[in-house]
Nucleic acid binder design. Structure first.
Length: 660
RNA sequence: GCCGCCUUAGCUCAGUCGGUAGAGCGUCUCACUCGUAAUGAGAAGGUCAUCAGUUCGAUUCUGAUAGGCGGCUCCA
């Protein structure tokens, strides 16, 4: 019997995995046990580091404010948080105070010591912590600790097989400085947190994640094995901030949100309009090739359409309130006109269903693929509106495919392939799939239909060979879905396309087709959107490319810069030829000096700058300057034009001389 | 919707301990015509988000509303 300290002398080992279970280094190991080291830089090690940092934060908070009551404090991606019930919310100044208090605790090198307790002992020790008592109660109420404690975050506290408390012990005096209900494991001591941590932001969060519960004050932090890694993390955050589509949208003059119009209602400026139009045009072309029919439907409808579809039952909160056309009465009090409610549409599917139903359909007509850039309006709650990614008015690249039950698997497969190919054409080539299944509290239709639909989607997803993760309960009320999660240039994932299988709306709308044997059959419906919404996809592409769009999407593709005025006419001729070839090109004839023009157009992220001076003109050439500052001088005019046209046609990204 | 913070020129931001405001960039005008990321000079531009309240006086203090930011919850 030895402990982990004896087993693993390397100081980067912070815990161990014994027979598959994470344990403190202080735990004892028998010779028959399989004990593996957990280093601080491993995923498990980072979680332990961050969880320990959360404990130190909590101790710091209770040192500064003994009245603060503890919520939970788990590790999260890149960091940790801890929730507190305090009379007054924290302020930014508190952060500095708390970091100083944390530094003191870290420098003390307090030991984390695990202690098994009974539920009664835990209650006695934590009598002053009502939230901890609640967690102890939840664990006691169920033999299966995981059942009530659905969230991983809560199981960090009491998720183990036994209740444990971690004491923070001053190594010099042996005094217990602080303690917390916790599953562990933890670092051997606080000193290992070092100076690679930082408190990052303050927020409020509902206790146990339910808006029915009181709000606690949450403090977020980040923690890394070294200061250098912390700095690298902060640099990544800054890089992400530079790519923020809201910032780039203003800087590059792409779109804005005029306050006069209302929250979440964007307007696209001319340059943003070009990008959007190119996005749409290419999508249209590909949809036409893939056998979609284009339809158009109105933005408003009488309420009965959404009663039929069920949207009013499930989502009326998310819809703009109705326009009420009031009933009218004559002098005798008789109704001369019945009142009607009109709604702005939050979805396109009911409209497409009506198009399907507008005439008798044969199995020969299937699959019928109806596509629309459909503008929809959703009354998103005020706190969730965010740039172009969460808006109240948006345009979906929405299609509904009606097919036979026999044909649905093939159609789903080809739809998924179509989606992935098209995303790749826009430059998003790294993705995985997510399968969202029935929410037991929010669904319509029979279990059999759901099972069959879910099974079919799962098979199609698996056949794609892509990584597949499950999202239990994440489906819409009418059917399960596959969503494509794309990773962008800096590794963030975005939910992009969705493909939903629906047996229910065809039922509700009584959709039918005539089968080969003359019988009437119910078609299956597939809902799918590639961009999700054009606005959101626009935001994702902006951040993915950091505003430096591939040439085909760039609002201005080529700018001609004369070294001095006298080379203007020569450049005009070249730019004129580019324009004739359909290139968005212009000459900068302004009074600015050449250096200033280069600076302006580089900042505007124009992919090709063509610079011309005496030397170029004499040789019938131009000089390329790219967005990264690299150059290619003295390129003959014909070759230059051919290169630019080719870059557009191949949808190439051009950031430097080496086109990527 | 909830918690906290924010809103001053087109943009980024100073500032006024309550006496109606300033810079840089941008815009306009003039001069300069220049070989790889900011030429110089001058001018215009603000109901200090909106509406109330307190005050002799409010951009400044209070409240409400709108919009935004960071989270939470939500996202058909």
């Amino acid at each position: 019997m030895v402990d982990g300290f004896a087993l693993f002398t390397d100081r980067s080992v912070v815990a161990m995995r014994v027979n598959g279970e994470l344990k403190d280094l202080a735990a004892t190991v028998t010779p028959t046990d399989d004990a593996q080291p957990v280093t601080i830089s491993s995923p498990d090690g980072l979680n332990i580091l961050r969880h320990s940092a959360a404990h130190v934060l909590a101790q710091a908070v209770q040192t500064v404010n003994p009245a603060a009551r503890l919520g939970i404090g788990p590790p999260v991606t890149d960091g940790f948080y801890y929730d507190f019930d305090v009379a007054e919310p924290f302020t930014p100044e508190d952060i500095k105070t708390l970091e100083k208090a944390m530094d003191r605790i870290i420098r003390q090198g307090q030991r984390f010591v695990r202690r098994v307790v009974t539920a009664d002992e835990a209650r006695a020790e934590l009598a002053a912590e009502p939230y901890k008592l609640e967690l102890i109660g939840l664990k006691g109420a169920s033999t299966d600790a995981g059942a009530e404690l659905g969230a991983d975050n809560e199981s960090v506290e009491v998720g183990g097989t036994e209740l444990t408390i971690y004491d923070n012990i001053d190594p010099k005096t042996g005094e217990t400085m602080w303690k917390d209900l916790c599953r562990g494991p933890h670092l051997p001591n606080t000193r290992m947190i070092g100076n690679g941590y930082s408190l990052t932001r303050l927020a409020a969060a509902y206790w146990r994640g339910s808006e029915k519960n009181p709000q606690l004050q949450r403090i977020y932090g980040t923690a890394w094995p070294t200061k250098d890694e912390l700095r690298a993390y902060q640099a990544r955050q800054e890089e992400a901030a530079k790519r923020d589509h809201r910032k780039l949208g203003a800087e590059l003059d792409l779109f804005s949100f005029p306050e006069e119009i209302g929250s979440g209602l964007p307007v696209f400026h001319p340059k943003g309009g070009i990008i959007r139009q190119e996005m749409e045009n290419y999508s249209r072309k590909r949809h036409a090739e893939a056998g979609y029919d284009f339809v158009y439907t109105p933005h408003i409808t009488k309420s009965n359409l959404f009663e039929t579809s069920g949207h009013l039952d499930w989502y009326s909160d998310g819809m703009f309130p109705p326009m009420k056309l009031d009933a009218e009465y004559d002098a005798d009090g008789h109704m001369t006109r019945q009142g009607v409610d009109y709604y702005l549409k939050p979805m396109n599917c009911p409209f497409h269903n009506l198009i399907f139903r507008s005439s008798g359909r044969s199995y020969r007509d299937l699959p019928m693929r109806l596509f629309e850039f459909g503008s929809v309006y959703r009354y998103e709650k005020s706190g969730v509106v965010h740039g172009l990614t969460r808006v109240r008015g948006m345009t979906q690249d929405d299609a509904h495919i009606y097919t036979t039950k026999e044909g649905m698997k093939e159609e789903l497969t080809s739809t998924l392939n179509f989606v992935l190919k098209l995303l790749a054409d826009y430059g998003l080539e790294d993705y995985y799939l997510e399968l969202s299944t029935k929410d037991p509290k929010k669904f319509v239709g029979s279990d059999e239909a759901w099972d069959e639909a879910t099974q079919t989607l799962a098979e199609v997803a698996e056949a794609s060979g892509l990584e597949l993760v499950s999202d239990p309960g994440g489906a819409a009320f009418y059917g399960p879905k596959i969503s494509v999660q794309a990773r962008d240039a800096i590794g963030r994932t975005w939910q992009m396309s969705t493909i939903q299988l629906d047996f229910n709306l065809p039922e509700r709308f009584d959709l039918e087709y005539t089968a080969p044997d003359g019988s009437r059959q119910r078609p299956v419906m597939i809902h799918r959107a590639l961009f999700g919404s054009i606005e959101r996809f626009f935001a994702v592409l902006t951040e993915h490319y950091a505003g430096a769009f591939p040439v085909w999407l760039s609002p201005v593709q080529v700018v001609g810069i004369p070294v001095s005025e006298q080379y203007g006419p020569y450049l005009d001729e070249i730019i004129g030829r580019l324009k004739t070839a359909g290139v968005r090109a212009q000459v900068d004839h302004s009074d600015d000096r050449m250096q200033k023009k280069i600076r302006n157009h580089t900042k505007a992220k124009v992919p090709f700058q063509l610079i011309v001076g005496e030397e170029d003109q004499a040789n019938g050439a131009v000089s390329f300057r790219f967005r990264d500052g690299s150059q290619d001088n003295g390129v003959p005019i014909d070759e230059a034009i051919a290169r630019i046209v080719a870059a557009i046609e191949t949808r190439a990204q051009v950031t430097g001389q080496g086109q990527s």
